[in-house]
Amino acid sequence: MLIIDCPWCGKRPEIEFRYGGEAHIARPADPSALTDQEWADFLYSRTNPKGLHAERWRHIHGCGRYFNAVRDTVSDFFVVTYKAGEARPDIGGDK
């Protein structure tokens, strides 16, 4: 069982959380201006890196809030967690 450090509540076991996929994928401001390919990229294409991955988590059985984390997808080690809306900490890895 992984221990995840919720920026609001502190360290809790992973079963309190729900995974929310890759972070920092902003919804396009003007979707109708996009080509089909750009829209498909927004909806479906993912970095899926082997290494550091910025991703969203939701503390669903706690405060209920979304936050972001950078996790190493090889070891599942959580390098850092940070609040939603904050920029990704500059610690390397694919972006």
Partner: peptide, 10 residues
């Protein structure tokens, strides 16, 4: 529940 390349799980 989450993406990983670890070849093990919870």
């Amino acid at each position: 529940a989450y993406t990983s390349y670890s070849q093990r799980g919870g």
